[in-house]
Design a protein around this nucleic acid. Structure first.
Lengths: 252, 252
DNA sequence: CGTTTGGTTGATGTATGTCAATATTAGTGG
DNA sequence: CCACTAATATTGACATACATCAACCAAACG
């Protein structure tokens, strides 16, 4: 599922432990896999929930529903992600977790995982890696929502999808077209803009030959320009990726 | 420093472990306390950094600086908070951490803490609690930035400050006036709005008798109205706090 | 086939940003 | 102790990114 590029930024002495933990957790969850063909509520907000999950295929998201009916998608999970790891430590999750596309997930009762977590440092490290990685993305997303324009956010998000799908082995790194099963409403709920405005941003990108979304797929036609649009809000590590450098074309 | 209300939402069987871990870490950091009288850069973004910190007095923040000079304050730390816990697992932090007011911090080399972390489950639990608590606030802040108006965000932030200062024992829970040493620019960098607009929002709150900020202090004159302004973006747990219920006054 | 869901576009409104000016205060050095 | 400077706070006039409202199309679907 992963090579060590996945663990960049982490202390190198932990890489092998992450891999062993990954395998151990996969073994322990083995047999619990369940496939969903459409939308499904995995975790209901604010109720006791004792499971930890692993996403094998498809997309899921952590979603906060506001009293007035609006939704904010806080975080999107992609294949290979462990999620609801904190079930081991908290009783309730303040947000729901939803399957956002046809997907397959495994799960395990928190007590069972917690036992291994305590006995096997590799399992603990793998869980902690997931939490820290998630925190990194949350930090980046706070920056995007706080300082980025709609265009910048969309660009950043598409780069994030592409990079994560490549790191998890779901797609090839050079692949410029990749599956993206979210609707514009779902994307907009994550981006903190309206679906209408997202639609306009996507049109601009399409017209400028930067990127096109259709039929549940994203085609990045000008990666460098896309990276340049997102650059102001990318974290320093992302901004310096070699495949992003070069072009001088502007988006708007 | 804390009573068990601090650990609400976490699995109750862990409360005592949190307390023991808290004491153990305090002991281990003892002697490293250092006072800062003004702004100070504790962690420089994107450089190797081996320390974990504990804030004893004053305020600090995790800050992402954008290439064009803008800043986003991602997270604010208050007395009692452990921060840069992830130094134990990552080499670099993509953001800087800054002292935002006169403050006292203790620190410890990550290798030293990691040793105890591995030997003493209480220490591990205390660290994990901090990470999870931080994640909870990040989730809330993503919701605020993604869906909240400027007024709602300001209200939410002030409630957050008040609640956390009370939980850490820095102030009394009934106290309506409390220290808030941040400048409007610092607040605005966290809120994702301009300082100018923040100033106008604060004026509205002042004119409506909801809250006044001056001389490094916040005076909440109408807690219920403040809570009502923030309500749309508060997480379900916060929204239901008994001290927030009741008034029907509107803010704007 | 109607109905629903997702997508697209136009016209218009508004929250918030930008630019500019001024007061106030705090710090700094002579 | 004073002159000078640099933050910080405040307010007004104006610009704009994005939301809202409304309509319509296309594809999926029972």
């Amino acid at each position: 599922m992963a090579d060590s590029a996945r663990y960049a930024l982490h202390r190198p002495e932990l890489f092998e432990s992450f891999e062993r933990g990954e395998k151990r957790i996969a073994q322990q969850m083995n047999g619990s896999a369940r496939a969903y063909s459409g939308a499904h509520l995995l975790i209901e907000a604010n109720t006791d929930h004792p499971f930890v999950y692993r996403l094998l295929r498809g997309w899921a998201g952590r979603i906060r529903s506001l009293p007035d009916g609006r939704d904010q998608c806080i975080l999107i999970f992609l294949p290979g992600d462990l999620f609801a790891v904190k079930s081991m430590f908290v009783e309730k999750h303040p947000d729901s977790v939803r399957i956002l596309s046809p997907a397959t997930v495994e799960k395990i009762h928190y007590k069972e995982l917690l036992k291994t977590y305590r006995e096997d440092p590799d399992v603990a490290n793998r869980c902690i890696w997931q939490v820290i990685e998630e925190e990194r993305r949350l930090h980046n997303w706070v920056v995007g929502l706080g300082q980025g324009s709609a265009e910048e956010r969309v660009a950043m998000l598409m780069l994030d999808f592409h990079g994560r799908l490549a790191l998890s082995g779901t797609i090839q790194p050079q692949q410029t077209t990749f599956p993206m099963p979210l609707t514009q409403v779902q994307l907009a709920d994550h981006l903190g803009i309206t679906a209408i405005h997202l639609n306009r941003v996507l049109r601009i990108f399409r017209e400028n030959g930067i990127l096109a979304v259709r039929d549940g797929e994203v085609s990045v036609t000008d990666l460098k320009s896309l990276a340049q649009v997102a650059a102001p809000i990318l974290d320093p590590y992302e901004r310096q990726r070699p495949e992003y450098g070069g072009s001088r074309t502007s988006a708007s």
